[in-house]
């Protein structure tokens, strides 16, 4: 099968790769780049465990996405979410609130929730419900996952207020 040369930036690292035209992103990310945090599940878009983010921060099912279509693009996987050794507020909330059980769908859930936070920083409960609907999880029953995402939304909003004195909450910084 004819190979195509593509340039893919994943978590800030740029790779030049020869890929088959039918290679999906999940295969390239896991099998070629060795980033196995992105999980391979149903490979048909129904379970959500392979979710990654595109450069606009949108959720992308990497099992249904052909790698050649993302030539020149920048992607984020679960390995790129914690920055400088510090967990993202979502990861922190998932951990503290007991939203992680077997952990197989967890990377997909975190990437799904990260996309939600980036696209809708004020996401409310129905928005969280809708965003998470694409990921199957038998262990948690979704309950603590929803709590963790809601908690991360609140944390990110509070951080944002704290970091922006002109937002009206000036006295808070002392």
């Amino acid at each position: 099968m004819k190979r195509h040369i593509i340039r893919l930036t994943v978590n800030g690292d740029t790779h030049e790769l020869a890929v088959a035209p039918n290679a999906t992103l999940v295969e390239v990310i896991r099998d070629r780049l060795g980033l196995t945090g992105t999980k391979r599940g149903c490979t048909s878009g129904a379970c959500g465990v392979c979710t990654i983010n595109d450069e606009e921060g949108r959720a992308l099912l990497s099992c249904l996405t052909l790698a050649v279509a993302w030539d020149g693009c920048s992607l984020t996987t679960i390995e790129g979410v914690a920055e400088g050794g510090r967990l993202h507020p979502l990861q922190q909330a998932f951990w503290e609130l007991g939203a992680v059980q077997c952990g197989y769908c967890t990377p997909g859930l975190v990437m799904t929730a990260r996309a939600l936070l980036l696209g809708n920083p004020q996401a409310d409960a129905p928005a969280i419900d809708e965003a998470l609907a694409g990921t199957l999880c038998r262990c948690t029953g979704h309950i603590k996952v929803k709590q963790a995402v809601a908690s991360a939304v609140a944390r990110v909003a509070a951080d944002h207020v704290a970091a922006t004195p002109e937002s009206g909450n000036d006295g808070a910084q002392g």
Binding site: R30, G34, T36, I78, L87, Q91, G98, V100, G103, T106
Partner: peptide, 22 residues
């Protein structure tokens, strides 16, 4: 309440599952 000890590994994609074995 004790958050699970392997939580960070599971949340950062570092937890190894069988399909990750090469």
């Amino acid at each position: 309440d004790q958050p699970r000890l392997d939580g960070a590994a599971r949340l950062t994609g570092r937890a190894e599952f069988t399909d990750d074995v090469r």
